[in-house]
Amino acid sequence: MNCSSISATGRLRIGVLALVLAALAPATSSNAADTAKGLRIMQEQDRRDAGWQTVRVNGEMILQSGSSISASRAFRLVRTERPSRSKGDNSRLTFSTPADVKGTVLLTHGNVEPKDDHQWLFLPATRKARRISSGNRSGKFLSSEFSYEDMGGSELEDNTYGWLRDESCPDNAKLSCHVVAAYPKNKKSGYKQRILWLDTQEYRVFQTEYFNKRGKLEKRMTSTGFKNYGGHWRPAQLDMLNLQTGKRTILKWSGYKFGESVSSDELSPQRLDK
């Protein structure tokens, strides 16, 4: 049979997308405490990062189990900024390695809660674009430690927030960080909450902790190698560590290009074969 839902290979590809989106989108999340202050901090982060319009970047995802590398994927990402507050960012992820997934495309048209994102997967072997189910938000993306939800390009409106405290930034005591909890509005979310560390100067998310539905700390993501691209800070590397299993997924970014033109064709589900 050839079920049209995403295949196992497809899952891998989608996972990469999630990683990409997580890296390119300023992370958001929260927890109860000072709700108004938490929201203000995240609004400020959203305001500062607005206006990037388009970005093209190369990505590599490395899966590690212990000290050994179990898999590696390379891809190119094109992403366009949300056209309005009622929409999310759009993106197109094209895999270049390994060879057996080369040419596979994952297209995402972002939405804001309560609407789910729309996703299509193009497989060059079948020359067919397939819709991706939105019911697997908490599933592993590409067998990585990132979930589809992590990769989904969270928007400000997708969560409620609460400021917890200010303290030194993780692994960078010279910087002070806001610690903000983000509570997903979507009931299909795999998380009860996420806690973010944003530095008080540039609002860069240095660390995110993910708590599962039972409230247990499950994963920790650290972002390093931040660089300013015309006012938009982006990390060179994301490191997601599963605290339950010890497995790790590293996502590396290179060759950021902001502001290049992206045609509507490039992000059209009817043109994925081009």
């Binding site: 049979m1 079920c3 839902s5 295949s7 899952r11 898999a71």
Partner: peptide, 20 residues
Amino acid sequence: LYAGLRWSLQNTADTQFEIG
């Protein structure tokens, strides 16, 4: 009429079984 089931393990080897 066609009925089928696919089980994807979602592992790094993309292991998948199908029956129809």
